[in-house]
Every structure is written in structure tokens, then in C-alpha cells.
Design a protein around this nucleic acid. Sequence first.
DNA 1: AGCACGCCGACT
DNA 2: GTCGGCGTGCTC
Length: 735
Amino acid sequence: MKPRFASVALNVPAGSDTYSYKIVDDISDDMLIGRRAVVMLGNRLMEGYIVDITDHADIEEDKIKPVEALLDKEPIFTKAMLELAFWMKEQYLCPLGAALACMLPPGVKARIQKMIVLLNEADVIDNTKSLIINALRDNKGRMALNALKKVVPVKNISSVLAELERDGVIAYEYTVKESVRIKDSYNEAAVSGSISTVRPVQQQLQAITAINKAVDEGEGAFLLHGVTGSGKTEVYLQAIQHAMDIGKDAIVLVPEISLTPQMVALFTARFGSSVAVWHSRLSMGEKYAQWWRIKNGQAQVVVGARSAVFAPVQRLGLIVLDEEQESSYKSDMTPKYDAREVAKRRCDIEAGVLVLGSATPSLETYYAAGKGDMRLLVMPDRINGKPLPHVDIVDMRQEIAYGNKSIFSRKLLKAVAYNLKAGQQSILFMNRRGFSTFVSCRNCGLVMKCPHCDISLVYHSDKGQLQCHYCGYKIAVPKVCPKCKSPYIRYFGAGTQRIEHDVKQIFPHARVVRMDTDTVTKKNAHRDILRLVWRHEVDILVGTQMIAKGLDFPEVTLVGVVAADTALNIPDFRSAEDTFQLVTQVAGRAGRAAKPGMVIVQTYQPEHYSLQAAVKHDYESFYRQEIEIRERLKYPPFSNIVKISLSGKHLPDIIKAAEDMAGELHCYLNNMCYNNDVEILGPSPAPMEKIKDEYRWQIILKVDVHIMDDIKYDIKRMVDRYSCASMDINPYSML
DNA sequence: AGCACGCCGACT
DNA sequence: GTCGGCGTGCTC
Ligand SMILES: [Zn+2]
Ligand SMILES: [Zn+2]
């Protein structure tokens, strides 16, 4: 028999994509490719993934070790998933093994322990050696390496152990365990059966027809641009139904924040037990069970957050990304993939159809649709025929000029008062939690900052604490200034607690409820608040993002955006886009049912184009102005952004590394004559220079889209040489 | 990631 | 002269 070699992908940073190992078992290639295996790398045993079988290896044969063991009964990756992983490692410059590892549920991972076994109790003079032997003897002659390291805390323990092994005093053994034991019985929540479909209206019919045709053909990408309430969900549901009718599976991605029981119910009501739900709050065991349910073909519809894009459906028909503009589709861990791009690529590989849905598409996606990379489907009308709510901008500068120092404009107060009298519900939106976002001493000006982060502490009135929203640091509110002992401390910058407090004071009889991370962390609190609102037991709902994304409050007729500038003032190229999207989304909460809606947006920059466009519900106008700025300043989609972050405990080291690297980059780009194609910003401190006691600096590259592939590998290699540096290709934001 | 190899400061 | 610091680079 001809010798066979396995190309095994290992999750080692800055290593090669695959390593060659000998195949000793008599197993067909098809049962090997895509399979998990255990191999030796250096002197440790690790889990890897076989991605190919060849009859030759490009290194000397005597260096090649055998595959130690095969895991599972069959390959865990399909050829399509392997191809997707190869694409990911090129696109995001991550190890191939890391791309593959992130496709599996956390439970599918071998836990490998190195054990040390005592063979004979040799007399040794060396102190470390006798410590090791004594420790082993005390533990019946067998210890895990990690346990031994704790008992014998010597730095060079592995070289000492190597000597002992050579002298035949000890031997190595390995234990390989699966992280999750396979459980056949998984307690599944009872799901209701199929509910009959809704009769679609004309604009939905057109979209459904186009998507269904593409699903039949196994090819196509769509941007479904529909205003809030235009009935995008019904389009998804009918397209999924069609895919299922022809024996294909569907994946629906929803932003984590919108993946509520109500959202899931939309799908389980229609598709019953064919639905598998996938989100971060599932336990490891639940994830494991769901994953196998999907892989075994017991679920045809997967509803989940970002990582559900890797759901192992057998016959992909359709991937839907709802609210495609959401930043949560971009992963913040290595590999830093963008689920939109992965979904597109996966559809290309597996003959699936991609549907991106949004009321406010990202600039990148709309631009791609304009170029013809995807087909634009527009749904401009609300399904109930009601007009979009009227949006009013209030210039807060004039309020101040008038002598109104409160956080509410006269107009907003009047509208809330009217609504209360009419027995109608209102929403007050504020994108910051806590009471005051900024606390300082009136006498000496000291700003209360987190000792671990370069960020001001937020006053939380309910707990009487100052909190850091980045590391969780908390202290009781100081009675006097820590520096000058002055008792006069001022609180600036309103958060949701302050809104709640003020509104209760102004309208003492109103029933006010606040909904933000602080009030929904308790179990069921989320559901309880929604119930209160739906039963009309609440007059005014105060909240953050959480109430803007996807939740349906049919009775709400007034939405107040208390401070639209918060998002606008963030120093990032996406701030205008974020603001437009946020105001449009919040506005979409108003007047969804019978009564017409009204939106009041408070701002200090009423003339800003993102707000002006949001007022008119005019996406096109916003897009035209924003895309022009992106093109002029060479931001995405007209460039690729490469963000290089350097972080560490010792600031001078970080600055030195950042400057060295910037020098290297300049030099490299000069030599390669890429000066006109790449713009280097920085090095500069990150907008939040210190977080959790780590200093952060960054270098931003704006790279011409045509030369990205020519330079990205070189840049990656440079970055890899600095242990404190990491890079992110096309990060969502530059912060 | 580990771990080894290798070249410069402070110790027996 | 050696011990050990961690910079650089390899692991099939
Ligand atoms: Zn003071
Ligand atoms: Zn902090």
C-alpha cells in the first residue's frame, strides 16, 4: 500500500497552515478528510483537523510523526466547511486551525492532559529531580503535568522532566477526554405546531418570488431594504418555507440583542420542532445537543446569533441576516470574521441564497447592491398602510437660550403630558445607562476616574455607587473629594436613571419603567417589563439600545430621543451612520398600530445630515451624502481598514513598540512603492488609552482595496513579531 | 501557544 | 569564567 500523509490543521498562532503526519490505519480518504485527530507537535499532544490526504510530504520523511488517534466515528467537517475555513484564513489572516475550531460548538473539543508516570525511584542528587520524584511517589506514581507544576514550581521543569525520561526514571502518558459527554436525552422545550401562513401583500410577493426562484436555482444574493413594519419577517418565513418544501435547510441570523423569546417564537410558531435555536446563553451541553441535532438533519431551520452562520446544516438553501448593519455580526475574537462575508462565501460554496435584510442597510452593503453584487429588493411601505411617524427635531441650544436647563425640551414635555392625558404610551430613549456619566469636584475639578481604566466613573443612584462600565470597578460615592476634601461634588451627563428620576418628578402620577442592562439582568426581568408595557400597565418606558432593536410595542405613540448627539460625537468614521440607524430604529417604535406615531429628537446639531435624513425617513439622501464623504476620506467601502492594536501593562514599552512598528511600516511601504495606496494613521493612543490596567495604542491603515491582497501577508508577519500587537481587518469601529 | 536555542549583564 | 535574562523562531 502506498504511504499516505494527512495534512493536519492545528490551532497554533503564527504556525504553518497544516502539518504532515503519517496515516497508519487502513481507512478510506473520505473517512479521514475533515476528521478530528490527535497528533504530536513538538513534545505535546494536541487536537487537530485533517484537511487533506496526500501520497507525499514536502519535508523529510523521517521527521514525520504518525497520527496518534482519530476522534469521532466520521469526519466532523464537510468538504464545503473545509473550503470555507481556507477562505477565512486568507480573509482574516488567522490560523487555519483557528478558523476550523470556531466552526464547532464549544463542547466538541478534546481535553488533552499530559501525565507523568514514575517508573523507578532512582536516587538523585539534583534537588528539582528529587522534588519531582517525591511528588510523584506521594501521588501513587502518576500525576498530571499541570498538577506537578503546581507542586514543583520550577521554571525549567520540562527540561528536567526530559532528562528524567531519557534516564528511564519517568514516562509520559496522555489522557484524551471529550469536553462534553454525549447525552441522548436533551430536554427540549415544547413547541407549538405550524401556524398557517399570512397572505403577503404586493411588495412582499415580489421579494418572495425573486428569492424563491433563486433558492430553486441555488444561486443569488439579495438586499431586502424595507422600512420598519414593512413585513420583512414574513418574507423570510415564506422563503424558508419554500426552501424546506424543496428539501433544503435555512439559517436565520439575528443580532444577539434581538434574539429574544418573542423573536424565536415567530419561527417556532411557523416551523415547530424543525427549528433549532442557537445563542450565547445556551449552556455548553445545550449547544452541543443542538449542534448535533442540526448536523443529523433533525432541524431544518436554525435561528441564532453570529456563530450560527457555521450551523452544520446538510443541504443549505438559504441564509438570512436580519438587521444586517448590526456591529455584532463582526466577531471580536480571533478569527475576527464578519458573519455577512462568511455567509456570502458559504452560500457561494454550498449553492445557497443570501438575504440581507435591513431598514437601514450598512453603507458597504448598499454600495455592493448598487454595483450589482447583490440584488436590491425594496419594500417602501408599512404593511398596515399607516404612514411612518412624524419626526421633529428640537434644537437644544435654543432651549438653553430660552433658559430651559433641564434635559427635556418644552416640546418633548408637552408631548409626554399630552400622551399621559390621552392614556397613550411613550418611550424615552437614552443610549447611556446609570444616573450621571461624569462626576467631578466643584472645588478642584478632579474627575472621578476608574483606577484601572482611563475612563470616568458613572454614578448609579440605585446602588449609591460610582461604576466603571469597562472593568466593573465599583466604589461607594465619596462624601468629599478624594483630593481636596471639598464636599461639593457635581454630577454631569444624564443616563437612563436620571431620565427616569426626572420624569417621575415632573409627572409624579405616571407609571414609569426603566429598561437597560441594569434592570434586565435578573432572571425573567426582561419578559416582565415587556409584559407590563404590552398590558398597558406602563405609561413611560425609559431605556437604552435594548428598546430600539426589534421590540414591538404596538401601543406606543410617542418616542423621545433625549440626546441624539451621544452617538454623533463618538470619534469614529461610522458615527453618522450609527446615528442615522439609531434614530431611524427608535423612530420605528412609534405608531406601529392603529394610532399615528410621533418622534421628537433632541440635539445640539439639528442641521446634521444624518438627523435631517432620519427626520424625512430618507435613507437614499443619507446614503448619498455619507458615501460621498467615505469616498473623499477613503473609508470603507472605498478602502480596507487594518487596525493594529498594541496593549500591555507597561506604557513606555507599548509606545516604543508602536513607534518601531510604524517605522517599519513606513519603510516597507516606501520600498514597495505603496505610499499612495496606503495611509498610515498614528501611532496614537487608543481613544480609551487604558482599560483594565492595560495601556492601548493603535496604528490604523487605510489600504486601497486593489492592493490589499498584495500587502496583507507582509503586514501580518510584521505584526506577529510583536507579542503585544494584534490586528483586525475591517474592524467595525476604530475605537 | 510552549519550548529550545542563543547571545549579553551580575554573580560564584 | 558561569547562571540566567527573555528576544527569535520552530514545531510535521
Ligand atoms: Zn476636589
Ligand atoms: Zn475600569
